[in-house]
Amino acid sequence: MRDARNLYELNPDASVPRGLPLVAGLTGFADAGAAVAQTTEYLRENLATTVVATFDADELLDYRARRPIILFDGDHLTAYRPPRLSLDLVRDEVGQEFLLLTGYEPDFRWEAFATAVLGLIEDLGVASTTWLNSIPMPVPHTRPIGFTVSGNRSELTEAMSIWRPTTQVPSNALHLVEYRLQERGHPTAGFVLLVPHYLADSEYPAAAIAALDAVNAATGLILPTDALREQGREFLARISDQVEENPELAKLVGTLEERHDSYMEGTSLRSPLTDEDGEVPSADEIAAELEKFLAHRRSREDDGPLPG
Rank of each mutant, 00 (worst) to 15 (best):
M1P: 15
R2G: 13
A4L: 07
A4P: 15
D13H: 06
L20C: 00
G28C: 03
V36R: 07
A37M: 10
Q38W: 07
Q38C: 09
E45Y: 00
V51A: 14
V52F: 03
T54R: 15
F55R: 05
D58S: 11
Y63I: 14
R64C: 07
R66G: 10
F72I: 13
D73Q: 13
D73G: 08
G74C: 04
L77Y: 12
A79E: 14
Y80W: 12
L85G: 05
D88I: 06
D88T: 07
V94T: 13
G95Y: 07
L100C: 01
T102H: 08
E105T: 04
P106M: 07
P106W: 05
F108C: 03
E111C: 02
A112T: 13
A114Y: 03
T115C: 02
V117C: 00
L118S: 11
L120T: 03
E122Q: 09
L124H: 00
G125V: 01
V126R: 00
A127L: 04
A127M: 03
T129H: 01
T130N: 05
W131R: 01
L132Y: 07
I135Q: 14
P136W: 05
P140I: 11
R143T: 11
P144R: 03
G146S: 02
V149A: 09
E155C: 00
A159Q: 11
F191E: 03
L194T: 02
V195T: 12
H197K: 05
Y198D: 05
A200D: 13
A200K: 08
D201P: 07
D201G: 12
P205S: 12
A206Y: 12
A208R: 01
A210C: 05
L212R: 05
D213Y: 12
A218H: 09
T219H: 05
T225E: 13
D226F: 02
R229M: 09
E230W: 04
Q231K: 14
Q231W: 09
G232D: 15
E234T: 14
L236C: 10
V243Y: 06
E244G: 08
L249Y: 12
A250L: 12
L252E: 06
L256Y: 01
E258G: 04
R259H: 07
H260W: 15
D261I: 08
S262K: 14
M264L: 10
E276C: 11
D277N: 13
P281T: 10
D284H: 12
A287E: 15
L290P: 08
A295C: 09
A295F: 08
R300E: 14
E301F: 12
D302C: 10
G304K: 11
